[in-house]
Simulated assay, not measured.
Amino acid sequence: MRILYLALKDLAQILRDKKSLLFLVAMPIIFTVFMGFAYGQGNQPQDPRLALAVLNLDADGVAAGELVADLQRSTVVRVEPVDAALSESDLQEQVGRNQFAAALIIPQGFSAAALNGGRPQARLVADTSSADGQNASQAVQAAFIRALSSAEIARLTLDAAQSAGLPAGQFDSDGLVHAAETAWQTPALKVERVAPPAAQESQSNPYTQTSPGMLVQFAVFGLITSANVLVLERQSGALQRLQTTSASGAQIIAGHLLAMFVVVFLQQAILVLFGQFAFGVKYLAQPAALLLVMVCVALWAAALGMLIGVLARGEEQVILYAMAAMFLLSALGGAWFHLEATGGLFARIGGLLPSAQAMTAFQNLIVRGLGFSSVLVPAAVMLAYAGGFFGLALLRLRRS
């Protein structure tokens, strides 16, 4: 009963503070909308092909024109025409600075050499020790072979017509080259990429990242009001008087923790419903798993808020500690962006945090479409953090 009494007292005190509604409900919703818009704008589809600089000094030649046209149709490289005044050394420097994956230089007379049966030369500048350089080189080599093959077919056709005594005016070398090049464009095998429905939805709906991200972020930031209750009790002497009663330290901590838990859980419930019905985030696809995740998030966040409350000496320190925790856990825990995009040490360190476990659990449900078992490990880690924060808060209270 003491635990329940303390929790109800805290909740009544929190609800009397009208500013708490701003921090607990209005700000998370506003930030979710803003971050979702920003994330969606930054996630606009971009051309994923490798940039290929093309310096075409044989612009009027048919074979050179077909080579460039073939490269423009490539799914691997993206043709970037460059100024004819650039030298080969300039292009090498730009490739070295990764402005381009490779640079192709087509010299004058390239087409004439191809149609006369000669050995047309072209220069490709690329770092073949890198994956991008290798892929760009392969794409250029394939297009080069197709362009020369088309020119050779045109030349052989003209020679055969001349040997047969046909009028030369009936045949157009440019047209023959173009016809042969067109024949190369008919694919023998069509490959289609199919992404899982959940992955497709996550790419088109930025709120699958920002909605749970802001939920996790403000679960920490919203504890400022709750932690202040404990600070005010200590400053007024109410906490010291409570410690002289039969209530144990664990009961005092548990009572305040229960109030914080209720605050965070209700905040989550509002944001989940808002995300589900306003932004189309599929929170309710797995209700039981979602409930488990929400309970675990509320427990570790409330326990962290309890620790902040016993550590802080005043309202200013509560705000400072809560802000520091919010930024650290949000940035490193993947609340602002996918940790998978960072990789390396950053992702490994961030993945250990309770905020990262919360994001993993939420996205297992709403992005990856996984079931109840997918949230068990993140839930266990979050519960371990809750126990650790609770133990530290109790130890600090007993020493104070």
Rank of each mutant, 00 (worst) to 15 (best):
A180V: 03
Y5W: 14
G371H: 09
R119T: 15
M214F: 03
M294P: 11
R78F: 13
L50M: 06
I106Q: 00
V125T: 05
A136M: 11
P378T: 13
D70S: 15
G118T: 10
L52I: 06
A112W: 08
I145T: 08
S202D: 01
I319P: 04
A356C: 04
A322I: 12
L86S: 09
L290I: 05
M359R: 03
P120N: 10
V77G: 02
G222Q: 02
A180D: 08
P107K: 05
T75C: 10
Q185H: 12
S74T: 12
L232Y: 01
Q235N: 11
Q203I: 07
I253E: 01
K18P: 10
S202T: 02
A51F: 07
L299H: 01
R313W: 06
L239E: 04
V264E: 04
V262F: 02
A63S: 06
V194M: 14
V263S: 08
Q267K: 02
D127W: 01
Q170G: 14
S226T: 04
A143V: 06
V76C: 08
A168S: 15
K9L: 14
Q268F: 01
V272T: 00
R399Y: 10
V68N: 10
P28K: 03
V231T: 03
V25T: 10
G334I: 09
Q72D: 14
A113E: 14
M359S: 05
A59V: 10
P287I: 11
D174E: 15
A53V: 05
Q44S: 13
F144H: 04
T157H: 00
A122Y: 06
V263K: 03
D60M: 10
A341Q: 15
V76D: 03
Q94P: 11
S246T: 13
T244A: 13
Q162M: 13
V293K: 01
L320Y: 14
V293S: 06
G36S: 03
F265Y: 06
R123K: 14
F362H: 01
T208S: 01
L115C: 08
P206D: 00
V263D: 02
I14N: 12
L307M: 05
N135T: 12
V62Q: 00
I252Q: 01
Y207A: 01
G343S: 10
S150I: 01
A131M: 09
Q200I: 09
Y5R: 14
A331G: 14
V25C: 12
P354H: 06
A188G: 15
A302S: 15
W336L: 15
V191C: 13
A288F: 14
E66M: 12
P28F: 04
S202Y: 02
A112I: 13
A126R: 00
A301S: 09
N116F: 09
S400M: 13
L365P: 00
S129I: 10
L383K: 07
A358D: 05
L156W: 09
A356T: 02
R16S: 14
G333A: 11
I252Y: 03
L352W: 13
F372P: 00
S248D: 09
Q92R: 15
A393C: 12
A195N: 12
